[in-house]
C-alpha cells in the first residue's frame, strides 16, 4: 500500500533575533522527521507543549514553510506531488485535499463573517460553486456536522464552543478533502462536547473515507480514536507504533512517562502508579546532546548521553522507536488487566 502522505527528513528551524542588534538564536522545532500516513488511517501525533507537533501539522499543511526535507502527497497510485517544493500558486489546488481543523473554535472562525460566508469561503476561493449550488453545498456541509439551516446568517459568537468546532469542521469538509489535519481539535472543549465531536469525527471518517492526522496531547483521546501513534519529544519523533501496541507495551521510555502521567478516571488505579517523572522539558535552544530524553530518562547510560539514537524498527515489527535499549528495557503500558471497576467500563 502506498502512503497517502509521506514526510521525509523534515526539518523546521525558527530563527529569532533578540532585539535589533542582538544575536540570532536558531531553534530547531523539528529535526529530521520521517512519517508515513496511510490512506484511511488515523495517525495521532502526541507530545507535550513545545515538542513540535503543531509545527509539524502546520508544515504539512504548508501554513509554515519547512526549512528542509520533503512532504509528498499521493492522491492516487503513481501520482505523487511533492508539496514542500510547490509555490503558493501551484499549491492552491492541493489545498482542497488537505484541510485543517484548529484547536480554538473561537479564534479559528472569523468573528466578522456569518456562518454561511465562513463555510462558503473555501468554495468561493477555489471557484467551485456559486449561486444556488454554492448555497446547497454549504447547507449540506453544515448538515453533515449537525448545524441546522437557521444558523446560516448568524455570527460565530452566537454559538457554543462545540457548535463553533462543528462549523470549523464543516469548513474543512466543504471541499471534500482527502486528509484532515486536526490540531488539538477537541482539547478546548468540555468533556461531554468533546465526546460529541469525537463521535462526529469518527462518523465523518467512515462516511467520506477520510484520513486523519490527529494532533493531541491527550492520550486517552488518542487511544480512542487513533490507528497509529507517533510520539514526539523536543522536535523528534521518538516512537511510532500501532495504537494498541504502543499502549500495551511502549518501547521508548518517554512514551512510558506520558502514559504514566495520564490521569485515568478510575480511583482504584491510583495505587498502581509510579512516581511522576522528574525534571522539566529542556528549552528547545538548549537541546541535550545524544538522546534528547536522556536528562529525564530513568534508564539513561553513557551511550545515551553521547550518541543520538535513530528511529528504527523494533523486533522487525511495526513499532519504531528511537532508543538504544528499546528491545531490552521493560516498560509499563497503560492498559489495566484488572477487570474494569466502573459500571461504565
Amino acid at each position: 500500500m502506498t502512503a497517502l502522505l509521506e514526510v521525509e527528513n523534515l526539518t523546521k528551524t525558527f530563527s529569532m533575533r533578540s532585539g535589533m542588534f542582538g544575536d540570532t538564536i536558531t531553534l530547531d522545532a523539528l529535526v529530521d522527521i520521517n512519517l508515513k500516513v496511510e490512506k484511511g488511517e488515523t495517525l495521532a501525533i502526541v507530545g507535550e507543549s513545545g515538542c513540535g507537533k503543531t509545527t509539524l501539522g502546520r508544515c504539512i499543511a504548508r501554513a509554515l514553510d519547512p526549512t528542509s526535507g520533503s512532504v509528498s502527497y499521493t492522491p492516487e497510485p503513481g501520482k505523487t506531488i511533492e508539496l514542500s517544493s510547490l509555490s503558493k500558486r501551484e499549491l492552491k489546488p492541493w489545498r482542497q485535499d488537505i484541510r485543517m481543523i484548529f484547536q480554538d473554535p473561537m479564534s479559528s472562525l472569523n468573528p466578522y463573517m456569518r456562518v454561511f460566508d465562513l463555510v462558503a469561503e473555501p468554495l468561493r476561493i477555489h471557484k467551485l460553486a456559486r449561486g444556488a449550488e454554492l448555497e446547497q453545498r454549504v447547507v449540506s456541509a453544515l448538515d453533515k456536522v449537525g448545524i441546522p439551516r437557521d444558523a446560516l446568517q448568524r455570527f460565530p459568537h452566537a454559538f457554543s464552543g462545540g457548535q463553533r468546532q462543528r462549523i470549523g469542521i464543516a469548513r474543512a469538509l466543504v471541499l471534500d478533502p482527502k486528509l484532515v489535519i486536526a490540531d488539538e481539535a477537541v482539547s478546548a472543549l468540555d468533556v461531554s462536547i468533546q465526546a460529541q465531536i469525537l463521535n462526529l469525527l469518527e462518523d465523518l471518517k467512515t462516511d467520506f473515507g477520510l484520513t486523519y492526522l490527529f494532533i493531541s496531547h491527550d492520550l486517552g483521546v488518542v487511544n480512542y480514536i487513533a490507528d497509529r501513534v507517533a510520539v514526539m519529544y523536543l522536535g523528534h519523533v521518538v516512537e511510532t507504533a500501532p495504537t494498541e501496541a504502543l499502549f500495551e507495551r511502549p518501547r521508548h521510555p518517554y512514551t512510558e512517562v506520558l502514559l504514566e502521567a495520564l490521569p485515568i478516571a478510575d480511583p482504584t488505579r491510583r495505587a498502581q502508579r509510579h512516581e511522576a517523572v522528574k525534571g522539566e522539558i529542556p528549552f528547545l535552544g538548549n537541546r541535550p546532546k545524544g538522546c534528547p530524553f536522556h536528562t529525564r530518562c530513568r534508564f539513561a547510560e553513557d551511550k545515551c548521553r553521547a550518541e543520538k539514537p535513530e528511529l528504527r524498527p523494533i523486533n522487525g515489527g511495526p513499532t519504531y522507536a528511537a532508543c538504544h535499549f528499546a528491545e531490552t528495557i521493560e516498560l509499563k503500558g497503560a492498559y489495566d488487566d484488572a477487570p474494569a471497576t466502573g459500571t461504565y467500563a
Binding site: V191, A195, L198, Y224
Partner: peptide, 10 residues
Amino acid sequence: LMSSIPRMTR
C-alpha cells in the same frame, strides 16, 4: 459525564 470520556481500553 463518565460515559463521555474515552476509557483506557484495548
